[in-house]
Computed example of a mutant assay.
Amino acid sequence: MRKKIVKRKTTVIRKSKKSSSVFSGRLLQFSIGLLFVFLVFGIGYHYRDGLAYYFSFKSNHASELETEEKRISDVRNFQVLEKKEDKVIGLDVSEYQGNINWERMDSLENKYPVNFVFIRATVGSDRLDKGFKDNWLGAKKNKFIRGAYHYYRPNENSLDQANLFIKTVSLKKGDLPPVLDIEKLPKNQSLSRLKIGLKRWLKIVEEYYKVKPIIYTGEKYYEDFLKEEFGDYLFWIANYNFYREEMDADWLFWQFTEKASVPGIKGNVDVNIYNGDLQQLRYITIE
């Protein structure tokens, strides 16, 4: 009689993955935390001069200079100014700065001389900047190299806009070339029609003042819409990005912040760097 063979089932005991998954999770958290620490340390080291300036200024002087001689609030601004080498610093103002005390507006933080100023003169086809007349005279009286700019409205007639600027602004020897400020895209016309209008404004203004105008715009607007087709013109570019600390070689001016404080102006003001020294700036003025 055969014996019945009974096969025993082998029970496989699987090791729990819980402990290993917990370890992996902690390792990932530690790695992310370490990366964050290195990132913060790297940024802090890169901006060490600006941070040191910021904290020493705030602790030693904030109470006495908080009202009129306000500090530059952004540490990056100080970093940019420290790298400017022999480049020239200037401002641009409009009615939004209110009444400016031009006699006090000589430098940023009593350290960086202000040599030039752009002043908004006109807006669109029918509006004068309320502060233009006083600002234009104030800049001249206090020996700033001055320039005037027009804020272009894409959906308004370019001929009317050019004529308004011409009627408003009388440029003299030593003034900077006229500036066309274009920041918006059209709503009721194509991009090609916008470019036709811009070219018409530039042509009329150039023929009247006998000098090629400068174009002001944001960096993205410049790259996307103007760089190729308006390559014959010099550009004044606005870029406030934290990562950018130097201007491109093909920019004539760089507006690097809109949050600076200057003696003589209540509130924030834009600050610009000219891509050259003071002698080169004077060279591009009207003769």
Rank of each mutant, 00 (worst) to 15 (best):
K4M: 06
I5M: 11
K7M: 11
K9G: 10
K9W: 09
V12H: 11
K15P: 04
K17M: 12
S19V: 14
S19F: 10
S21P: 00
F23S: 13
S24G: 09
S24M: 12
S24V: 14
R26H: 08
F30N: 12
I32H: 07
G33K: 10
G33D: 05
G33V: 01
L34A: 15
F36G: 06
V37R: 02
F41K: 11
I43R: 07
G50L: 05
G50P: 05
Y53W: 15
Y54L: 14
F55D: 00
S56T: 12
K58L: 13
K58D: 12
H61G: 05
S63Y: 11
L65V: 09
T67C: 10
E69P: 00
D74Q: 15
R76E: 04
Q79E: 15
V80D: 01
E85C: 00
V88F: 09
I89Y: 07
I89C: 11
L91G: 06
D92C: 08
S94G: 03
E95Y: 13
E95S: 14
I100M: 09
N101V: 13
N101M: 10
W102L: 06
W102C: 02
W102F: 15
V114W: 01
N115P: 00
V117D: 02
I119C: 05
R120P: 01
T122A: 10
V123W: 09
R127V: 12
D134P: 00
A139T: 05
K141H: 09
F144D: 02
F144N: 03
I145P: 05
G147A: 04
Y149W: 05
E156M: 06
E156D: 09
S158H: 04
K172E: 15
K173P: 01
K173V: 09
L176E: 01
V179N: 07
L180C: 03
L180H: 01
D181A: 08
D181N: 12
I182E: 02
K184F: 14
P186G: 04
N188C: 07
Q189P: 03
S190Q: 05
G197F: 02
K199R: 08
W201G: 00
K203A: 06
K203V: 02
K212W: 04
P213E: 01
P213R: 02
P213F: 02
I214D: 00
T217F: 08
G218D: 07
E223R: 14
D224A: 13
E228P: 00
E229S: 14
G231V: 08
I237Q: 07
I237E: 08
I237F: 11
Y240M: 07
N241A: 14
Y243P: 01
F253S: 09
W254I: 06
Q255M: 06
Q255L: 10
P263S: 08
I265H: 03
K266V: 09
K266P: 00
K266Y: 13
G267N: 03
V269I: 08
D270H: 11
D270N: 13
V271W: 08
I273D: 00
I273W: 03
I273P: 03
Y274V: 06
R282S: 03
I284M: 12
T285N: 04
